[in-house]
Structures are given as C-alpha cells and as structure tokens.
C-alpha cells in the first residue's frame, strides 16, 4: 500500500467512552490501517468489537480520544465541526438500518437533497431537482418516488435512498456501516452489486463494515479483523480466507455456514467458545487469550504487535511471530 494513493489513513486511532463510576469503555484501541484509492477495506468482527465505533470516529461523529485520521493526507482528527465541513463532502456514510436512517417527516427528495443544501451546491431549485432525480435514477428509483415519504418504501428501496444521499456529493470515501445486514437476503445482493457498480463508475473508496464474512470476501480488496477494539489481522481478502493466521480469524471463518451438508460434516469444528470479554476491563496481554485455544503464559502478559507475517499479511499473535 503506497502512502500517496491512500485516501484514508488511520494511525493509532483510539476511542474511549467514559461510563458511570469513572470507568472507561475501550471501544477502539490503537487501530491503524489505510485504504487506497478505489479499493475496499472490509472490517469484520463480532458485534461489540468496535467496528461501528471505529467508523463513527473516522467520520467524526465521535471525537477520537487519540490517534490520527488522514483524509487525502490531511489530518482531520483535531478539526472542529466547522473546519470539518469541506472534508464532509469527501467522506460519506451509509447506515445500517434503512428504517432509522431516514427521517420519517421528510420526502425522499428532501432527504437526498439535504447534502446539496448543507454544502450549498445548487444555485437554483431546478438544478437541485435535476441532480436529485438523476441520482434517484442511478439507484434505480424513479422521479415519482421523490415526493413520497420514507415509510412508503420497502427496506431495499429505503437503503437505496440512503445510498443516493451518501453519493450525491460524489465523495471519495464512503463508509458503509453494515449496509446490508438489516435487509433480507434477496435484496442484499442487489444492494451490494449496486455499491460495486458505483465504485467502478465513480472510483469510490469503501470502508466496508460487516459481520457477514462471505459477503466481505465478495466486496473487499483487503480485510481487517477486529477483536475487542483492536485490529488483530489484516491482509488481502482472498489470502485471509485461505490462510487465516490469527486463531480468532480462523474461529470466525469456521463459523460461516457451508451450504453443502456433507461438506459441513467434514469441516473441522473449531468454532469460537465463550463470550466477548467486557471492553470496560479488557484482558491483559493479548485480548484474545481468554478464548484462544493456543494461549500461553506469554499471551497473558504481553500484548502482541500487529506485524507482517508474510508479504502484506499483518497479524497480531505471539504464536505466529515466535
């Protein structure tokens, strides 16, 4: 990954949430990665592992506790909301729940036109109408839909409205926060293919967050695996599926259901056991050691670093590096 082509670079990003009793939730801890222009980085992990917090910190809904967020080489982690405004145009987000992410009191036109208004892009009402209906056509909705309210649409249609809203500003980086997990299976493929087409057409860069591993393999160029706020493994998408190095990744992969029941029986049962430890008091050393079948004393005491194991394949595990 060359530095100059990276649209998004995240260095040591940390987000802690204070909770009652002066405790701290370690939602994101020292996460670093970069996404090259036109590529997709998939971020996977169990629920509660900090994927969404990470995305929301990058897009600055949350204030980062530490670390740097470089968008096109500019550090946006310390800018205030007003200074952020020009950068908002470059990065947009597609949300998980198509029911909650659209304002029920607004028509589709108003929803899709909101970014145009916020950045004062259109000089006239006519221009705005044109841009909105053009965008709606591109996500497969027609002109008549513009005057309708979000509650009149199906989940898939709503998510396409959400995509239209995110893409109307022609951003460089789009953060997809589980954009398909709330949709039913028949529509998931439709939406994912639409996202891929847009990527080719507009040269978009995606940070794609999901917990559906087979889907992530389909859309991503690179995959990062998160566990309890930390990035534990990162490499090219197919490689991670063929040669998972981190025991957590291996566990996740084994949890993918296999369509053929005969093959499924043969498959090694190495699923993950136990629950995610509390992010308020994460385990010492390697955070995965409480559930890791290979944990040794070294894992309990010393936190492993994310190091390159083979070319382009980064993993944070003592077992691999020793």
């Amino acid at each position: 990954m060359k530095e100059e082509t990276a649209v998004l670079q995240v260095k040591g990003l940390t987000k802690h949430f204070p909770v009652a009793g002066h405790k701290v939730v370690h939602a994101v801890d020292d996460v670093s990665f970069s996404v090259s222009r036109g590529k997709t980085l998939g971020l996977v992990g169990e629920s509660g592992c900090g994927k969404s917090s990470c995305a929301r910190t990058i897009i600055r809904i949350y204030e980062p506790t530490a670390g740097k967020i470089l968008l096109d080489g500019d550090d946006i982690s310390l800018l205030n909301q007003k200074q952020l405004l020009p950068y908002r145009k470059k990065m947009q987000m597609i949300f998980q729940d198509p029911y909650a992410s659209l304002n029920a009191r607004m028509t589709v036109h108003d929803i899709v036109a909101e970014p145009l208004k916020a950045h004062k892009i259109c000089s006239s009402r006519k221009e705005e109408n044109e841009m909105v209906s053009d965008m709606l056509a591109r996500v497969g909705l027609n002109r008549d839909h513009a005057g309708r309210y979000a509650h009149e649409f199906s989940g898939g249609q709503r998510q396409r409205v959400g995509i239209a809203r995110a893409l109307i500003l022609k951003p460089e980086l789009v953060i997809c926060d589980e954009p398909i997990s709330a949709l039913d299976v028949s529509i998931q493929a439709q939406v994912v293919n639409m996202l891929r087409n847009f990527q080719e057409e507009l040269g978009l860069t995606y940070l794609f967050i999901a917990h559906d591993l087979s889907m992530v393999r389909y859309v991503s160029d690179d995959v990062g695996v998160m566990y309890l706020g930390q990035l534990v493994e990162k490499c090219e998408a197919d490689e991670i599926y063929r040669h998972p190095l981190h025991p957590y990744t291996a566990g996740l992969l084994s949890s993918i259901p296999v369509p053929n029941p005969r093959l499924a029986q043969e498959k090694e049962k190495s699923g993950l056991e136990g629950d995610l430890p509390s992010p308020i008091a994460p385990p010492s050393g390697c955070r995965f050691h409480t559930r890791c079948p290979y944990a040794s004393s070294c894992c309990r005491e010393e936190a492993p670093e994310l190091k390159e194991a083979s070319s382009g394949h980064f993993v944070a595990c003592h077992r691999i590096h020793n």
Binding site: R88, Q92, F95, A100, L102, E114, A118
Partner: peptide, 17 residues
C-alpha cells in the same frame, strides 16, 4: 442518537438544520 440525525451530522448539516 438515531441514525437519521447521525446521517445529518455526517452530511455536514448545520445544528440549526
């Protein structure tokens, strides 16, 4: 904290909007 309000914030809408 509903997603549509977060969406408005990521869009860059003003507090007034």
């Amino acid at each position: 904290n509903q997603e549509f309000v977060l969406a408005a914030r990521t869009i860059g809408s003003s507090t007034k909007t």
